Simulated assay, not measured.
Amino acid sequence: MPKMRKISLLFLLFASCQYIERVPSKEQLLQEEMKSIDWDQVDALPSVAGCDTIKDLAVQKNCFFEYLSRQVQMRLDPESLAELYPERDTIEVKVTVFPDSHLSFEPQFAKDSTAYDTAKIDSILRTRLADFPKINPALKRGVPVKSQFILPVILKSE
């Protein structure tokens, strides 16, 4: 029996030494973790104070976009834009929420569209949306990140 114990003990030591050698390095672990992260999705969407307390993510998202749409509509005075562009009922605006909570608004038109004075629309957006209320940035693993989305701005409602 004692000889059997020595063999078992030696096997155990040998096996445990092999196990120690298989522990991945910090760099390997980091690389594996980085590959597992979906960088196209955020953990928390941008938000405003009135929507932060909502637990249901779909309802919170809806609350945020309704708030944002309302604020943009109020500030832009769609009637003046409708006068500039009578053939359009909606313009699309790319909204960028930066990690430091500042926003940028950029009109989006088809690339072949030369009929629109994009500089004029851009100027209107910058002027009228300059004092936009604070938006909390999106979060990825607890870190504020940049997010972008397209927001339709209704010029005419029938």
Results as ranks from 00 to 15, higher is better:
V59T: 14
K61N: 11
N62V: 08
N62S: 11
C63K: 02
F64T: 01
F65W: 11
E66R: 14
E66F: 11
L68Q: 08
S69K: 13
S69I: 06
R70F: 13
R70P: 11
Q71D: 13
Q71M: 10
V72A: 09
Q73W: 06
Q73G: 09
R75N: 12
R75Y: 10
L76M: 14
L76G: 06
L76T: 12
D77Y: 11
D77A: 10
D77W: 12
D77M: 08
E79F: 10
E79A: 13
S80H: 13
A82G: 05
E83T: 11
L84S: 10
L84P: 08
L84K: 15
Y85F: 14
Y85C: 07
Y85M: 14
E87N: 10
E87A: 09
D89R: 03
D89I: 08
D89G: 10
E92P: 00
K94F: 02
V95P: 01
V95I: 05
T96M: 06
F98S: 05
P99E: 04
P99G: 00
P99H: 06
P99K: 04
H102Q: 08
H102G: 07
L103Y: 06
L103Q: 10
L103F: 05
S104C: 09
F105Q: 04
F105D: 01
E106F: 06
P107I: 08
P107G: 04
Q108T: 15
F109K: 06
K111P: 14
K111D: 15
K111Y: 14
D112G: 15
S113A: 15
S113C: 15
S113N: 15
A115N: 15
A115P: 02
A115H: 14
A115E: 15
Y116P: 02
D117I: 10
T118F: 06
I121K: 00
I121Q: 00
I121T: 15
D122E: 14
S123R: 05
S123W: 02
I124A: 08
I124V: 06
I124R: 07
L125N: 03
R126H: 04
R126S: 09
R128G: 03
A130S: 11
A130Y: 10
A130V: 11
D131G: 13
D131A: 12
F132Q: 10
F132L: 10
F132A: 12
P133W: 04
K134G: 08
K134S: 07
I135Q: 10
I135Y: 06
N136T: 09
P137A: 05
A138G: 06
L139D: 01
L139F: 04
K140Y: 01
R141L: 07
R141E: 01
G142D: 02
G142L: 02
V143Y: 13
V143N: 01
V145D: 03
K146F: 02
K146P: 00
K146T: 07
K146V: 15
S147N: 01
Q148P: 05
Q148W: 00
Q148C: 12
F149E: 00
F149Q: 05
F149V: 05
I150T: 15
L151R: 04
L151I: 12
L151E: 07
